[in-house]
Design a protein around this nucleic acid. Sequence first.
DNA 1: TGCTTTATTAAACAGTGTTTAATTATTTTT
DNA 2: AAAAATAATTAAACACTGTTTAATAAAGCA
Lengths: 205, 205
Amino acid sequence: MGIADRKERDKEELREKILVAAKSLFLEKGVEKTSIRNIADQIEYSPGIIYHYFRDKNEIFHALHQGGFSQMMEKMQVLRSVRNPMERLKAMGSIYVGFALENPDMYDLMFIKEAPIDHVYNSEHDNWKEGGGTFEYLRMTIKECAEQGHFKGHDLEPLTYLIWSAVHGMVSLNIRKRCEVVLPERQNTIIREGLEEFFKILDRL
Amino acid sequence: MGIADRKERDKEELREKILVAAKSLFLEKGVEKTSIRNIADQIEYSPGIIYHYFRDKNEIFHALHQGGFSQMMEKMQVLRSVRNPMERLKAMGSIYVGFALENPDMYDLMFIKEAPIDHVYNSEHDNWKEGGGTFEYLRMTIKECAEQGHFKGHDLEPLTYLIWSAVHGMVSLNIRKRCEVVLPERQNTIIREGLEEFFKILDRL
DNA sequence: TGCTTTATTAAACAGTGTTTAATTATTTTT
DNA sequence: AAAAATAATTAAACACTGTTTAATAAAGCA
């Protein structure tokens, strides 16, 4: 069975090559402006071959999309050592922002780019990787905060959404270049400073 | 000179027709998926004619982009009657969200879609229409709140950015369909509920 | 009327995603 | 080892895209 295995590996290898090439091109020129022919050129194969490994361009997008969530969850692992839920919540915000600033194009892919319409939620669909897991973790953390006496008088589900939105908003406005309206001398630091203000607010809730 | 005037009007008329067609198509199918030929078909002219009125597709995008800000500022006019700055701030949030939910595709155009790279900030560039005015107004309102004793211990510039981001975040996550992670029964109301939580927080600052 | 300018178009160019049929390479069977 | 079957890969085509060009039609003016 070694031969079949090796063939399987070879196939997997080319699939991986396509993904690596697609990722570098997507992040460099954007999804829309990267053509199948560009990817084929990079891996030195004909364009047609790509359709033997992915149904269409969207499927390539999705494969990378999933990879992004794995990558982010990886970074979140350090939160395990943070016992105090409010500290954990704030640390989560820092990690989230850090990930977004270090991988702006991947973040764009994950949270800003329009999700292709034909995104079918089949049985194999792993909600954890697709971001639901991260939100679930945020929800749990906020619930723990509430149990420790925070967020009195608040409805936790919309509050969770608001907290996520605040951080996402700062990051996405920056990524999509809507920050020119901010005072020029503060544009580079506005996200981290905004996060600081956010922490001050959270501490008082 | 009447003839020249009429010609001017006719020209303006076709320009307007192109914009109306482009807008309806952009909002219906998205900018990327609307072709010049689609627009030409809709106005029953040949594709080439469009390049006599707009340099390229981006210029059409920008014309609509600007129109969106005028539209939004229009809605903001009612704020003039709100004397209390904190009430005005909250009302601003409601109007902002209202505009976004009523015109999701226009909002997308204004705040989410990647701004074309070649967006040159020339002397005629009207910062007011381009959104800087709205942010300036938000900044002033928050400053007034501070003068009335709110936001003690906060740095107002990043706080302003944070407040904008919170509202933008909620709206943009919704528009780009990242809300499936929210409890299903609350997805439709999550933005307005999130805004309510936000107001509760603001009231205590 | 003929001449000039303007408005409009048809056609072409170089690019796109995707599908098809043909070709090459590899594995399996005889 | 030769032939048949299967898989991997490609070249070519199709129907699109944004944009530019040169040709045509229309309008205004002399």
